[in-house]
Simulated assay, not measured.
Amino acid sequence: MNKNTSIVIGIIVVAVVVLIGWGMVNNNPSLPVTDNPVVVTDQTSDQTLPITSQSGVPVAVTSQKVIPTGTTVVLTGSAVPNGALTSYWFEYGPSPSLGRKTNSQIIGSGFVSIPTPIYLVGLAKNTTYYFQLKAQNRFGTVAGQSYAFQTTAGLSPIVGGVPKVVTSSASNVSTVNARLNGKVTPNQAPTQYWFEYGQTTDLGRTTAFVSVGDGSAVVLASASLTGLNPATTYYFRLNAQNQFGTVNGDLTNFKTISQPILKAPSVSTRNVSALSTSTATVHGLVNPNGATTKYWFEYSDNSLSDTASLKTTSQISAGSGSNTTSVQVDLRSLVSKNTYYYRLVAQNSTGLVRGETASFKTK
């Protein structure tokens, strides 16, 4: 065999291998049918690609898991918005060229993987259909892998429909916390809900997904937020989805409470009462001024500037409010017919304050 003959045989062998591989792909509808998908699905686990926190084009993963009947099918997959408002849809058709498109559905702008269910109707019985998930945001459009399914001969369409959602007002709003509220109606299909929220109408953050069953009654939805910024407006909405699709509630907002300006407590030494030969009750006024505060009395039978003879009562909590409250402490073991000097003292994280000095004489 000469050199030219060997080259020709090698070319023929390569061509045969390529043609056999192409035939295997096109004759097995459970295999991918796109040449260069943007995102590849693990055919056993349907896991998405790793998620990052850098804004960019979304991630789209088509799932092979389908629920076909005679004229309908439930398709699903997952998408990661990657920091920009993202919508998804499916393209499908009776040939690999697809040709039909579902309505787009919005999944927000977070960085978590979100399921992308859709329900197709009006299909032909006993027919092979090809389908592909697509997702789009301001950075671009991506396509998941293409797969195929076959409708059945006589299974009835699935009972149920897309959920209903209502975004309600936020509650328990403080400087750094808030509770998001809403209502979900599952509409006879297993349904889950979540909230999107953020400091702009693009939102960007999501709460955990919560399952609410498959009933027909309205279910209250809520999520607690922590670590918010004081005096900041946050926008949010409630979302829900089941196998029939994804639904977005109305966008609303709330504003966290401003951080109080803390300052030293205010104190005022007041009168004395219940005088006896060895006891007396001293009074005063304390305002914590918004910071956790403790108060006590200093007293002496000499001079309050004489630290050697200065005595103090036990420290008592005045709370952290902003209202002035009356306080009093009983002094005991005093000396009869003796003059005593006293004053109210209070302290919080911003400082210590002493009230004016007053005096009394025991009986």
Rank of each mutant, 00 (worst) to 15 (best):
T256V: 08
N338E: 15
S336N: 15
T206L: 12
P163D: 05
G108Q: 03
A346Y: 04
V282C: 04
D42M: 08
V218L: 10
T72K: 03
G23A: 13
T116I: 07
N229R: 10
K134T: 09
T167I: 10
D301G: 05
L85M: 10
N187F: 09
S276H: 06
G10A: 14
K183A: 13
N103L: 14
L310Y: 08
P265I: 10
D202A: 15
G110T: 05
G249P: 04
W89M: 06
G245C: 09
S168R: 02
S169C: 00
V166L: 10
T201N: 09
T362F: 12
V73D: 02
S268L: 13
V353L: 05
F244Q: 00
V40M: 05
K361I: 15
G83I: 05
I51A: 14
S95L: 11
G99V: 07
T226I: 12
D250M: 09
V38R: 01
N242A: 10
S169L: 12
Q132N: 06
L19Y: 05
V286M: 08
E356R: 03
T69P: 04
L203T: 00
G108C: 08
S216T: 15
S359L: 12
T233N: 10
T292D: 11
A84M: 03
P32L: 07
S45R: 08
Q43Y: 11
P115I: 09
T313M: 07
S55V: 14
S109K: 00
F254T: 03
Q47F: 14
A60R: 00
T277N: 11
T191G: 07
D214S: 15
T269N: 03
I9Q: 02
S169R: 05
L203H: 02
I67K: 04
T281C: 03
T277H: 07
K125S: 14
V57T: 12
V13R: 00
Y92H: 01
T62V: 08
F131E: 00
N126V: 10
P190V: 08
P230T: 09
V39W: 10
P81H: 03
A240L: 09
T116Q: 01
E91M: 10
I51P: 00
V18Q: 03
I118G: 00
